[in-house]
């Protein structure tokens, strides 16, 4: 049996349960995340992605159903500390999570509370600043940073906790293109080192980097699969009103004009396929 870091069964979540206008954000979600998987969670605004993410580290508790992290049920208060150390979340609005007056202290805040020895703490902070490209800004005030820098700081402060699973809730949304590439490269490295990644995103090019894509619609899982299978299901993508990464979209446009192409996911695959097609045409 696969080693699942996270398991979700029949998860329902209702905001304002018992109030006049309850909103059912999750209507029965089953999901198992193997250790080391890179999972992309996509779906329209209000489809329940962020709610699901918050249920995965006990920030929200199920209205019905169960969530286990490393076999620990999130309903048990005694497990919360372990669960939150295991699963770290980087949010969309990093301002909400800054507590310190310098970048360095901000990154140190989490690991400091774990009671680590000073040398280990120093090493973790330095490493987290380095990989997130913030070393030069270590003395700056977090609130004086630009949006992109804040995004990277939010990731750095979670990384310093060395979680087993990192959840990014649209954490790249405010980054400029190069900062986004840097963060994605960082995620690639963390993935290679065996970290479990769950990335909530609207960016289909980003989702294509994952091992598996799960699309939520109206609080339920509407489509899932590895990126190749996922983006190949054009009918389902249309039905769910989801877009495709650039290379997939261009390939689809060419197929509509009758060009025979193999399955395409990445830009490199499209370039190779087209060069092949052209060479065959020239050979005639």
């Amino acid at each position: 049996m696969a080693d699942f870091l996270i398991r979700v069964e029949g998860l329902r979540y209702v905001y304002g349960a018992g109030s006049e206008a309850p909103v059912e954000a999750l209507k029965g979600v089953d999901l198992a995340v193997p250790r080391g998987e890179w999972l992309a969670l996509i779906g329209h605004n209000g489809s329940g992605k962020s709610t699901l993410a918050k249920c995965l580290n006990a920030l929200l508790l199920p209205t019905a159903g169960e969530v286990w992290v490393k076999g620990l049920n999130t309903r048990e208060r005694a497990h919360w500390l372990t669960i939150r150390q295991t699963v770290g979340i980087v949010f969309q609005n990093p301002d909400n999570q800054f507590v310190a007056s310098t970048v360095e202290e901000e990154v140190a805040f989490g690991p400091e509370n774990l009671g680590l020895p000073p040398a280990v703490l120093r090493e973790r902070v330095d490493e987290a600043l380095e990989i997130s490209g913030l070393t030069a800004l270590r003395q700056a005030n977090p609130h004086s940073l630009s949006a992109g820098q804040k995004g990277r700081l939010a990731i750095a402060s979670i990384l310093a906790m060395r979680p087993e699973c990192l959840i990014l809730d649209e954490a790249t949304a405010f980054l400029d293109p190069l900062a986004r590439e840097a963060v994605l490269e960082l995620l690639g490295r963390l993935h290679q080192q065996g970290m479990t990644l769950i990335m909530v995103t609207h960016h289909m090019g980003e989702a294509a980097l994952a091992d598996r894509i799960v699309a939520l619609a109206e609080g339920r899982i509407a489509l899932e699969g590895d990126p190749r299978a996922f983006f190949a299901d054009e009918a389902a993508l249309r039905r769910l009103n989801l877009s495709a990464p650039a290379a997939v979209a261009v390939a689809a446009g060419l197929r509509e004009r009758g060009v025979a192409l193999p399955p395409i996911l990445t830009e490199r695959e499209l370039v190779e396929a087209l060069v092949n097609v052209k060479e065959r045409l020239w050979a005639r």
Binding site: A246, A247, K278
Partner: peptide, 15 residues
């Protein structure tokens, strides 16, 4: 934009 990147990659590959 990704489209421009694709176009460049195609030109570089001799397309």
């Amino acid at each position: 934009p990704p489209t421009v990147r694709l176009a460049w990659a195609l030109k570089k590959a001799g397309f």
